[in-house]
Design a protein around this nucleic acid. Sequence first.
DNA 1: TTTGTTGCAAAACGTTTGCAGCCTC
DNA 2: GAGGCTGCAAACGTTTTGCAACAAA
Lengths: 146, 146
Amino acid sequence: MKEDIIIASNIFTEFLVQRKHRKTPERFAILRKIYTFDKHFDAETLYNSMIDEYRVSLATVYNTLDLLLEAGLLIKHQFDGQPAEYEKSIGATIHHHTVCTICGHVKEFTDKKIRKAVQSKMFAGFDSTHYSLYVYGVCKKCMKKN
Amino acid sequence: MKEDIIIASNIFTEFLVQRKHRKTPERFAILRKIYTFDKHFDAETLYNSMIDEYRVSLATVYNTLDLLLEAGLLIKHQFDGQPAEYEKSIGATIHHHTVCTICGHVKEFTDKKIRKAVQSKMFAGFDSTHYSLYVYGVCKKCMKKN
DNA sequence: TTTGTTGCAAAACGTTTGCAGCCTC
DNA sequence: GAGGCTGCAAACGTTTTGCAACAAA
């Protein structure tokens, strides 16, 4: 959706103003790039993909990713020892992940029953914003190898 | 439970034999230590806690943690940028985690409805063994600060 | 003008690796 | 005896940090 980036930009602008942070071109260039991705990406990939359009340093990439996380515009995943992976949160359908414990392959899936069960859970003294579910096991390819 | 370590040792022994790995004293000393912990721990903490009883190198700790993961005797968590955390799996009740996005504080909770929803999920071409659910949000302490 | 942000490079950190010697099998 | 395993230290790769120059407010 094209509107997602507009919504995200507005949220980010409001977030920055409220926190007395500056609205630098780097930050918005990074946000725009992120909202063109439909899959998971890591910091290095994001950094490389930006070089032609708007050059920013890797440090700024990391800095901005942190801000976007705090603003709720991004979700972060830490799959095993690999670099952290990110995905946009606005306009993305809520999904879960299967992770192969042999080869590390990650796949998305959706399940209404699980989603409802988690979302209806209320916590005393904890204001939940989002969640991540990882189901571990062995994928088809790795099953065949053994 | 005291029997958990016995069950775990048996599973580990069988695992090592099957994989043609050696039953070294280091590996069983580490397994025993792990099963005395009731909370999450990281590799460094485990290493330090062993020094008096049975000295092993940090490299061996990491090596053994990997084996125990493969044997299904351990569950690994990667909370944000912190060192990986582990917990024993035998004799532990299935639980989920809330993670504060401000201070990083992790708390366990259980929920039968969520557990059933996830466990009843069937995957085509994926043999699931266990799962992790992280609910992100703001904890009580961090709510008060703002 | 003030002060937050940037780019750069160096440092930090948890984890992995290479290797010589050791000890299961 | 053979070959997997250990300890050690050095290497690795991602992320963080310190600092001077820069630019948003």
